[in-house]
Every structure is written in C-alpha cells, then in structure tokens.
C-alpha cells in the first residue's frame, strides 16, 4: 500500500497537506477507507467553526461502520469538500484526492508533531 511521502499523518488515520497559502487540507488515508468499506455518508464541519487538535469534527459512514474524524491540528475551518458530501464513494476511489476540509492552523507547531510517511507506514505494520 502506498503512503504518499509529501503528506503528514495522524495516528487516527487522517492525512494533512500543507498548502502554499499556509492552510492545511485534511482527508482520511487509504488504509482508513479500506477498513471502513463502501462509504455511504459524510458529515463535514461548518465553515467558520474553530477546532481544537484532536476534536471530533466530522463523520464518515459505510454500511457496516461509522467513524469519527478528528482534527489532526487545531484551527478554523475555511472550506469543506461538498463533492464528497454528495458522492461519498469518491473517498473509496481515491482517498488522497477526496479531501474533507481545509483548515487555517491555529498553531503550525502542531503539524510537526504528526507522523511522516515512514512513521505512518510503521504504525500500519504494527496494527
């Protein structure tokens, strides 16, 4: 299973990408979508909501499971991906392009505490 090297990861299986404008984009990993199976519903946070690191802020549902999504870092929600709300299967098709929401970080130092691709792969092996 390939884990993109340009992304950072949370232990709870979210990925984040630091964008050129200083915001971060959040999604769930390929591993997470495989565990959950066929997605049928996604609930995203409201734009403008301020999240603390680790706060549960979104839900992804498959037929057999529902999983909370935790904010990998704190910040304000500045955009959400309406396309995955209307077509949750996009997450199954490519979980790294089907992003969930975009945050303006409250404290960029929190990004440094996340896992890099190597560390995340090790986590997957140990599970």
């Amino acid at each position: 299973m390939s884990v993109p090297t340009e992304l950072k990861y949370a232990k709870s299986h979210e990925w984040i990408r630091l964008e050129a404008d200083g915001t971060v984009t959040v999604g769930i990993t390929q591993h997470a979508q495989e565990l959950l199976g066929d997605m049928v519903f996604v609930e995203l946070p409201k734009v403008g909501r301020t999240l603390a690191q680790g706060e549960d802020c979104a839900v992804v549902e498959s037929v057999k499971a529902a999983s909370d999504i935790y904010a990998p870092i704190g910040g304000e929600v500045i955009a959400v991906n309406a396309a995955v709300e209307s077509s949750p299967e996009k997450i199954n098709e490519d979980s790294y392009s089907a992003w969930l929401f975009n945050l303006k970080p409250a404290n960029t130092a929190e990004i440094n505490g996340l896992l890099d691709a190597d560390e995340y792969e090790k986590l997957l092996e140990s599970e």
């Binding site: 519903f41 037929v63 057999k64 499971a65 529902a66 909370d68």
Partner: peptide, 12 residues
C-alpha cells in the same frame, strides 16, 4: 441508515 443505530454507533 444503520450507522445511526446502537449496534454500530454505540455511544453516539
């Protein structure tokens, strides 16, 4: 819509 229900969602 079983993800609303206790056997999947438990405390939520």
């Amino acid at each position: 819509l079983q993800a609303r229900e206790q056997h999947i969602r438990r405390s939520k």
